[in-house]
Simulated scan of single mutants.
Amino acid sequence: MKVVVVGGTGLIGRKLIPLLTANGHEAVAVSKSTGVDVITGEGLADALRGADTVVDLTNAPSWGDDEVLAFFTTSARNLAAAEQAAGVRHHFALTIVNADTIPDSGYMRAKVAQEKVIAASGIPYTIVRATQFYEFIGMIAGAATVDGQVRVTSAAFQPVAGDDVAALLAELIDQPPLNGLIDLGGPEVQPMSTFVKRFLDVIDDTRTVVPDPAAGYFGATIDDSSLTTRDGARIGATTFAEWLSK
């Protein structure tokens, strides 16, 4: 089966492509760097020719509210049109756990809008909603740092390894479309501030972590249910300690 991974040169795509290949699929990574632009449509028709399945792992180049909304809705519509023309039978997208419960985040609103475009496209689909990746904890710490202090929320956090995200996608590729959502989270739930401190300790970073219930998450108000999975979610196998030791 030919699987085209759009955004396949990014974090999850680089992990997914070898898994698909090992499972006997013809896995093709495409991105703007390979001449495929999901916003202008350049290269899309050629990239999707003969594809059975498309996995959308694209991410917006800008996080401004208007820009990110335009990116995800435009890219989803362009992909859907190209997939219809190519006869694609299964569309995958990677979005975010509980995106619909954090409406004051422009990024989350954009991911929900992307999901709505996919659901209305008429193409059979599966949407994997994952929690935040272990690989992003350093970025979270950086964004929360002021004058050497990392002021980060103490709300519950359930990050997952990028390897586990790729593994679930690879597993689902061979299954029928869900025409719905499946959630994925990590095996541990702790305050975000605890995860950040553990990460900084391992890399010998001396910044002080200040747990702050009011800190929010990139400007959005959150609580203990915002960044954690609900009943029925899939749980990744990789613990944070295991990931830190790699």
Rank of each mutant, 00 (worst) to 15 (best):
A81V: 15
Y107P: 07
T126D: 00
T101N: 03
A80R: 03
I96Q: 10
R14Q: 14
G106Q: 10
A110P: 00
R77C: 10
L11M: 14
R14G: 10
A70T: 15
A70C: 11
A119G: 03
D100R: 12
E67W: 11
T53A: 04
A80Q: 04
I118K: 00
V97D: 04
L79W: 11
I137R: 04
Y134F: 06
I12R: 05
F92K: 02
T53M: 09
D66Q: 12
Q84M: 11
L79P: 00
H90I: 05
A99G: 00
L19M: 12
T74C: 08
M139Y: 11
L19T: 13
Y134C: 00
S105K: 04
N98P: 02
L94A: 02
F71D: 00
N23K: 14
L79R: 01
H91M: 07
L57K: 09
S62V: 14
L16K: 02
L44T: 00
G106I: 11
A80P: 04
G138E: 03
A76P: 02
S105M: 06
T53E: 06
A60R: 13
A110V: 02
M108F: 04
D66I: 03
A47L: 03
V54F: 09
A70K: 15
V30G: 12
V117H: 10
A47T: 02
G35S: 11
V38T: 15
G41V: 14
D100S: 12
A70Q: 14
L44R: 01
N98Y: 07
L44E: 00
A85Q: 03
D66R: 08
G43M: 10
D104A: 11
L79H: 02
A27T: 13
G64I: 13
T40H: 08
D66H: 08
A93M: 08
G64R: 13
D52G: 12
V112Q: 01
D104H: 06
D104Q: 09
A110S: 06
Y107W: 13
S105N: 04
T53L: 05
F72Y: 15
D104C: 09
W63A: 12
R14H: 01
L57I: 07
T53C: 05
P18I: 04
E67M: 13
N98Q: 11
I123R: 07
V36R: 08
G138K: 03
G122D: 11
A120E: 15
G43E: 08
N98H: 13
L11C: 10
I96H: 07
K116S: 11
V28T: 09
A130D: 03
G106W: 06
R14V: 05
G13C: 10
A70S: 15
V112H: 01
F133A: 00
H25P: 04
S33K: 14
F72T: 07
